[in-house]
Design a protein around this nucleic acid. Structure first.
Lengths: 183, 183
DNA sequence: ATTATCATGTAAAAGGTTACATGATTTG
DNA sequence: CAAATCATGTAACCTTTTACATGATAAT
């Protein structure tokens, strides 16, 4: 699947692995991520399979860059994937929920400390989705007017992140209150 | 991490791999899952590491069962893990969001079809979290009165699943309406 | 002085999915 | 007669994470 986020970004413009990593951090952070090492490996696989080509741009005083460009074959593959319906829901893995599920033997204060730490982290994330990420989308849409339509979908995915974090915070509030009063 | 869901269930009572898989399906489906094959492999590793022991229960007309029991060492390890704070937010991977993010080139109708299919799937999941899963927790709490405290945390995790699915459905409604009107 | 940024990669290890193998009994 | 349930396991494959390696420049 990493394959498709790479093709997706390369379809906007030729990019280096490093730049794709930065784009991922800025825009898809709340629903997709990848390590740089894996990005480099997968870009190489794209080239091997004829979905992208690469050229080296020498730089002085910086390491040379390897810039990847999507091929027509790569565009076909991407479009094919985009057209396929998503037939199953993704199965999540959330370590904190797992921990909470089995935490009946913990002391009340330890339980509350864990919940409050989560609250702090989710609040921070909620703010970054509402502020930095929203701003990022607005800016990119202005810089690249041909991506205006795309930016409306980016905003839709961002909006889900916002709603999900809000729901999580609401649940944490409820749960903390419940534990404080009735544990 | 699979290790800990296994220890968590074995801490309630001795169980077979098959029974753990059923317990997972019934109770932690919305935040944790595992394949049977992986469960068997990990149970074996628990035994190798002295966190559980196993005995074979011969059965007539059914395959023999291998029943695993948690050891004191296993209980210590579980409790240790439960006590540790969760210092980082889990990074999600949601293929549907990824697809949507890059779907500006899709036709309006294809986009709507994808969103409506998601709606159908999430609605079904939402109902199962509200109905079957809630009922399951109530029943288990009645059957095993010593797990009364645990069942309140199970219910808390279930409640988050419910809120998250509700948020997702709300977002899908908004997004479908937006695409219908302004795409 | 140390950390962050830019920039690319390899290798080992861990974790997870899918396919395959077996086989009786019960339900539809 | 076919499919589901109960029950365990191995092997191959794929994906992902972590560690390692390099190295200049700019900022704190």
């Amino acid at each position: 699947m990493l394959k498709y986020i790479l093709l997706g970004f390369l379809n906007y413009r030729p990019m280096t692995g490093y730049a794709i990593k930065e784009a991922i951090n800025r825009s898809t952070g709340h629903f997709w991520h990848a390590e740089l090492s894996q990005i480099y490996v997968t870009l190489k696989a794209l080239e091997r399979d004829g979905l992208a080509t690469s050229t080296i741009e020498p730089q002085s005083q910086r390491p040379d860059r390897r810039v990847y460009t999507i091929t027509p074959h790569g565009q076909t593959d991407l479009h094919q994937w985009l057209s396929e319906p998503q037939l199953e829901l993704e199965k999540r893995k959330e370590p904190f929920l797992l921990k909470l599920f089995f935490s009946a033997t913990l002391e009340k204060n330890a339980l509350l400390a864990h919940l409050r730490l989560q609250h702090k982290q989710h609040e921070q994330f909620y703010r970054s989705v509402r502020n930095q990420m929203a701003e990022e989308i607005r800016q990119t849409a202005q810089e690249y007017p041909h991506l205006a339509k795309d930016s409306r979908l980016w905003e839709a995915t961002r909006r889900l992140g916002e709603l999900q974090q809000a729901a999580y915070l609401q649940w944490l509030d409820e749960t903390i209150e419940y534990i404080e009063k009735e544990w």
